[in-house]
Amino acid sequence: MSNTDELVSAIQAAGADALRDIAAATSAEQLEQARIQYLAKEGVITKFSKSLGTVPGPEKKRVGQAVNDAKNGAQAAWDAKKADVGGGEKKIVAGFDVSMPGLRRGVGRRHPITQVLDEVKSVLIGMGFRYDDYPEYEDEFHNFDSLNTPDWHPSRDSHDSYYTKPDAKGEAHVLRTHTTAFQIRAMKAIGQPPIRAMTAGRCYRRDDIDATHYPIFNQIDAICIDRDVSFADLKQTLYTLLTALLGDDIQLRFRPSYFPFTTPSAEVDVLYRGKWMEILGSGMMRPEVLRNGGIDPEQFQGFALGMGLDRLAMRKFGIDDIRHLYENDEQFLSQF
């Protein structure tokens, strides 16, 4: 090994030492210490460049390169670290103090439920569903009867649903208990299949308020009807929707369930961040419901799905109390 080789490896070793010490520094003082040790006038690396004069001509370039590499590497690491440990020299650069706050208008936010709704809508719109508004001030036919929910069904109890006083025509209304109330209206409005329709919005149930219950909540509902739309299509649609919303690493579980307006019915659970959670109800539309919508159930079949947006937003953002969603505290709203 020549003298030059030894010198170059000594320089490289000094460079490595410098990087190590700079990385290890946790305070402005320690960082300054490292600068003095390696980069200052009398610093280890600087000294090597002074010794350059003693190196034979042909080797000068190689040694000079090694010194430069060590110096530049250490300096870059030092500059980067300085921002981390802070407390460096306070400087007014060219007449302005860069540390003074920028003049900001402030950033507004859409409500977390709106954000989740927009995501769901954009996925389903991409799959050919059309979004329309449907009334939340509903009648019993659309909210219950047309959905195969007989008048003795417990959900129709005034313990569970809000009813209004009679209007001028003597008709009382129900505040929709689910967005599923849109199904007949959508079929009638759109006509014959193929139909892919959805709606979303507020629903009402006569619940007491606590951390997980609120008498007012938001849902999205969708239906898809054509000649051979099947349970398999429903499953695939849900995989597409839920992976888009919650990420590709989720798992789904389909459980038999009961809704008066679907058979087979499936409750869907999703394994999200290590926990199973009930996320939506779905199933194949009942022949009675299709018929009520003016569609021949012998020719056509369809699926329906309905999902609560409040719970979804809570899971997605880790919100622990449903009441936060309706308190509108700026400290809460400005996080999303």
């Binding site: 050919g128 508004d133 054509d226 051979d228 349970f231 499953k235 579980r253 389909f254 459980r255 087979p264």
Partner: peptide, 24 residues
């Protein structure tokens, strides 16, 4: 379907007539 097991039914989008997705 229950006896087969819902989770054993393949998820599959089968050819269907297209519809135009839209927001009102």
């Amino acid at each position: 379907a229950r006896m087969i097991g819902y989770d054993n039914i393949a998820a599959e989008l089968r050819p269907a007539r297209a519809t135009r997705g839209a927001d009102c």
